[in-house]
Amino acid sequence: MNIAVLSGKGGTGKTTVSTNLALALKSNYIDCDVEEPNGFIFLKPKIDKTEQVMVEYPFIDDEKCTSCGKCVSVCQFNALAKVKNDIMLFEKLCHGCGACEIVCEYDALTYKKRELGNIESGTVRDISCSRGILNISEPMAVPVIRDLLKNLPKGINLIDCPPGTSCNVVTALKYANGAILVTEPSEFGLHDLKMAVELVKMYNIPFGIVINKDDGKNNIIKKYCKDEEIGLMGVIPYSRSTAILYSNGEVLYDDFDHKILFDELSKEVKEVLKWN
């Protein structure tokens, strides 16, 4: 079973929930927040394998190219531009669709490969961990996420999604059988949670909500869950002890009180997601 952990906005505690819940469920952990993968900071797995993520980009043979501009016209991603009598390539904008190669009548376009990022995998406490890392200055994270998720191990996989509701999240969500939405009791948290809920509903998969930094009151998130009849899986109290453990890069699950909290949360996850 693949469980996506996502949030409408950054900073809600998505990775905190993902890493500790992975230990509670004894599941595999996959960090798809490839622009800032920080789950390994807490889990600290021993990295056994590193793989490059390669993407294709067009290569223009200047001796064959007539600068007719057909490749520029067909490119939907503005990776090619005609400047006077020359064709300019912006390789980092290329999605590798192959349209430019198809329309070129002079065989002036071929494809080469370049490194976009890499994937690291390892183990800790008998669970498998993997993460994607996008190279600095690269604008496209989707190919790294796709490579990271294409051969998921058997068993329970906890997918730590990127923040927000962009195409990066959509790519990760395509592999999910269930979802956990992490939010915080604030107006911003509620606003972005609503967008995440709509996104998950599009995929018609079971989901529930976890409130991080909960104030213990009948806040706007709890009211929203009640009004919309959405399962509230659990809450993580807003406490100084949690903040200290987190700021020191420690695993909350190693603390007795937090272990009880995440063990209870794991039971609720199984119930809400109709565990099989």
Rank of each mutant, 00 (worst) to 15 (best):
P163N: 03
Y203C: 02
P237T: 05
I136Q: 11
I30D: 03
K274T: 01
N157H: 11
D263I: 06
M1W: 04
G155S: 08
K92F: 02
S67E: 04
E91A: 04
N151F: 08
V197T: 05
S247T: 12
Y238D: 15
A4V: 09
L273C: 03
E101H: 07
L193N: 13
S73V: 01
L25I: 04
V169D: 08
K226D: 11
L43I: 14
S247P: 15
W275Y: 15
A79T: 00
R114D: 07
H191E: 14
L261I: 04
C100E: 01
C167G: 09
L116S: 11
V197S: 11
K223V: 09
L93E: 00
K223W: 02
I244K: 10
K46R: 14
S266F: 01
F77S: 00
H95I: 10
S27Y: 04
N248W: 05
V124Q: 15
T19I: 14
I244T: 15
I3T: 01
Y253G: 13
F40N: 11
F207V: 01
K64M: 07
V144C: 06
N212H: 04
M195I: 07
G10M: 12
G13Q: 03
K113T: 14
L261V: 01
F40D: 14
S18I: 06
I119K: 05
I41E: 13
V17W: 01
F40Y: 09
E63S: 10
L252G: 05
D33S: 13
E120T: 10
D160E: 08
F77I: 00
L265P: 05
N177S: 09
G117N: 10
V169H: 12
E56H: 02
C68P: 01
I119F: 01
C167R: 05
R240A: 11
L199R: 09
K217S: 15
K150R: 15
A196D: 13
T66W: 04
A81N: 00
I244R: 04
L232R: 02
E115R: 10
V235W: 05
M1F: 14
G96F: 07
V83L: 09
K222H: 13
T50H: 02
K82T: 01
